[in-house]
């Protein structure tokens, strides 16, 4: 489904180049559940934006469902984004003047879907995230957990095959975070491909496949124990996490993301 090859992205900040991504290779199969972790500034969001066609790589190639995205025009990228990719953001990104239902309808409205069909689908999706009775509420009247569920509903409404979540629980308390993760994991079980950027080890560990980034390089790519989540309480320290990665490095799922990453992280 996703095929990244040698993707590099460099920003300049204050005249100095900052490597946000460096020669990243990554392939993702449909239906995978992947968590992306790593220190702040390591390029997680940049990777996600790249996958979501919000950003263009400086070099390297990105094939989405076999389509070479570098050659696409901005119009086509926008359409592809609207139809195939759902975004969930840390800060929800709901429009305050619109009701929950209207926020959810927004992607369909942009795609030109007719109002009746729009309303039907949006209502169904809102029920799916358990907020059917909040359809007419505006963001100001909802709790953080509810806001993120509305945002999830909005990400789902176009029936995308790829769901990208950038720290979806970052602004939520423990319980609400669990709640939201529960919702998107359910979606993954139903077949959607899921990438979650998180700082929360307990959440990251739940994924079937875990990426760890440092300085724009994927330094770890390991198969986890899956969504079952039974391992949740067992290990909490990053050290334990690293050690477990060492064991599974030889596993069949281990893609190498660090071929040339060795020196590039140096400036940090």
């Amino acid at each position: 489904m996703i095929e990244l090859q040698g993707v590099t992205k460099t920003y300049t900040m204050g005249g100095q180049p900052v490597r946000a991504l460096c020669q990243v290779d990554l392939s993702v199969a449909p239906g995978e559940y992947i968590s992306v972790m790593g220190p702040s500034g390591s390029g997680k969001s940049t990777l996600l934006n790249m996958l979501g066609l919000l950003d263009r790589p400086d070099s390297g190639s990105y094939r989405l469902n076999g389509l070479a995205t570098e050659t696409l025009k901005e119009e086509e990228r926008a359409r592809l984004r609207g139809e195939n990719i759902g975004f969930i953001f840390q800060s929800f990104q709901l429009i305050n003047r619109l009701t929950a239902l209207e926020n959810i309808e927004l992607p369909m409205m942009l795609a030109g879907v007719n109002p009746r069909e729009r309303r039907q689908t949006a209502t169904a999706v809102l029920a799916q995230v358990g907020l059917a009775e909040r359809a007419g509420h505006r963001p100001g009247q909802l709790s953080g957990g509810q806001l993120q569920r509305v945002a999830i509903a909005r990400a789902l409404v176009m029936k995308p095959r790829l769901l990208l979540a950038d720290e979806p629980t970052g602004n939520l308390d423990q319980a609400a975070g669990q709640d939201v993760i529960g919702v998107i994991e359910q979606l993954n079980r139903e077949g959607i491909t899921l990438l979650v950027v998180t700082h929360d080890i307990n959440i990251g560990r739940r994924a079937g496949r875990r990426l760890r980034m440092v300085d724009g390089v994927i330094v770890e790519d390991i198969a986890g124990d899956g969504v079952a989540g039974a391992t949740g309480e067992r290990s909490a320290s990053p050290v334990a996490d690293l050690s477990s990665s060492a064991q599974s490095d030889a596993g069949p799922n281990a893609n190498s993301g660090k071929a040339t990453g060795g020196e590039s992280g140096a400036p940090h």
Partner: peptide
């Protein structure tokens, strides 16, 4: 920015 992320093109 959000509208663009949700599939709006620059032209839109």
């Amino acid at each position: 920015g959000l509208l663009k992320a949700l599939g709006a093109s620059g032209r839109q």
